[in-house]
Amino acid sequence: MRPVTFTLNGAPRAAFAAEGQNLLDFLRRGVGDLSPKYGCGQGSCGACTVIVDGETRLACLMPAEDAAGRRVETAAGLDPQGRHPLQEAFMEHFAAQCGYCTPGMLMAARALLDRNPRPSRDEVIEAISGNLCRCTGYEPIIAAILSAAEARA
């Protein structure tokens, strides 16, 4: 075990990480942020997508120790006071059914809109192409992200 000091959703945090523990497990068990989901554990499904220093990362593939000194953002921190425009848009467009992919989708979308505030449909598709969804058929998710971008512009 060794201490990892980092920033989680804007607040300084420190917790112990076990040797070889990945960031997903560390966030869920060590820190108690349950918003990143464990889907496949091998970087294929995107359910664990978080943002580290502004870039999307698959938390299941990133060693927890590599988060030391870095800014980690999860769906839980999108808008601690209320609902982030992306969350509003996901609700408005019925872009979630079982909800398991939703936190990862939201973070992939957030990172996209941060670097590209007015993405095209193809750019949205590319941004979420690493995130699997079994329920929605993707179309409502694409519509939600495009409408959140429009609302922000």
């Binding site: 496949c40 091998q42 598709i125 590319e126 192409s129 699997l132 058929g137 993707y138 179309e139």
Partner: peptide, 17 residues
Amino acid sequence: VDFNTYLMPGPGDLAPH
């Protein structure tokens, strides 16, 4: 045995419905 080898269409394969 996993999502790498079990194929599912992604958002890039969508058809209008």
